Amino acid sequence: MIQQALKDDPKLKVVYKHYPGEKPGSKFAALAALASIKQGKYDAFHHALMATSGQLSEFDILTIARQVGLDVEQLKRDMKDPALENLLERNRAVAKELYIDGTPGVVLGLEVMPGVPNIHKLERLIAKEREINRRAASPTSAF
């Protein structure tokens, strides 16, 4: 749904925040995705991971990394960067504050939703948020 919304609306900006769940491999996948930024392959890797259904093992994650052109040995070294673990901890804290307890989750303006809404609802929420922002940005007169 997010990819469809981005395709339909080039002005839309999406910010991904990795928040690994409890499933085995979830934290490994999040660290690998974040580490892939150093090789300039984040988008391809992230989308390949998201397109895969079911639970992924570490082997599966590294296979996908290789398929999108990542240097897997470098990726493994980059995953050990303590800054990535710190980032995941900060993301967990934000998720907790927003009462997000699973993935995926969507935050759009003041709306916090578990999962990803269908494309029609997502488009309505985007339009609503843009209208709120447009009103807030337009000069008003008290006279």
Rank of each mutant, 00 (worst) to 15 (best):
Q3V: 06
Q4S: 09
A5C: 11
L6W: 02
K7D: 02
D9F: 01
P10T: 11
L12F: 06
L12S: 12
K13N: 14
K13C: 07
K13Q: 15
V14M: 06
V15D: 11
Y16R: 12
K17C: 06
K17Y: 07
H18I: 09
G21R: 00
E22P: 11
E22Q: 14
K23V: 08
K23I: 12
K23D: 14
K23R: 14
P24I: 01
G25I: 01
G25M: 07
S26A: 15
S26Y: 02
S26F: 04
F28E: 00
A29W: 03
A29P: 03
L31E: 03
L31N: 01
L31A: 01
A32W: 01
A33I: 01
A33Q: 00
L34F: 04
L34V: 08
S36M: 11
K38C: 11
Q39F: 13
G40M: 08
K41Y: 02
K41C: 01
K41N: 09
K41D: 05
Y42W: 06
Y42R: 04
D43G: 03
A44M: 00
H46C: 05
M50R: 10
M50A: 14
M50H: 09
T52K: 15
S53M: 09
G54V: 02
S57R: 05
S57F: 14
E58I: 13
D60E: 10
D60I: 04
D60V: 10
I61K: 00
T63V: 11
A65R: 03
Q67A: 15
V68I: 07
D71P: 05
D71N: 15
V72D: 13
E73H: 14
E73P: 08
Q74Y: 05
Q74V: 06
Q74H: 11
L75P: 06
K76V: 10
K76Q: 15
K76R: 15
R77Y: 07
D78H: 01
M79G: 12
M79S: 06
K80L: 15
K80N: 14
K80M: 13
K80F: 00
K80I: 03
D81Q: 09
P82C: 11
P82E: 03
A83V: 10
N86G: 13
N86P: 00
L87H: 04
L87Q: 15
L88A: 08
E89K: 12
R90A: 13
N91W: 03
N91P: 02
A93M: 11
V94Q: 06
K96T: 14
E97Y: 08
E97Q: 15
L98D: 06
I100Y: 04
D101K: 13
G102A: 15
P104H: 05
G105P: 03
V106E: 05
V106M: 07
V106A: 04
V107Y: 04
L110D: 15
L110T: 15
M113S: 05
M113P: 02
P114W: 14
G115M: 08
N118K: 11
I119E: 12
I119L: 08
I119F: 09
I119D: 07
K121D: 10
K121A: 13
L122Y: 02
L122D: 05
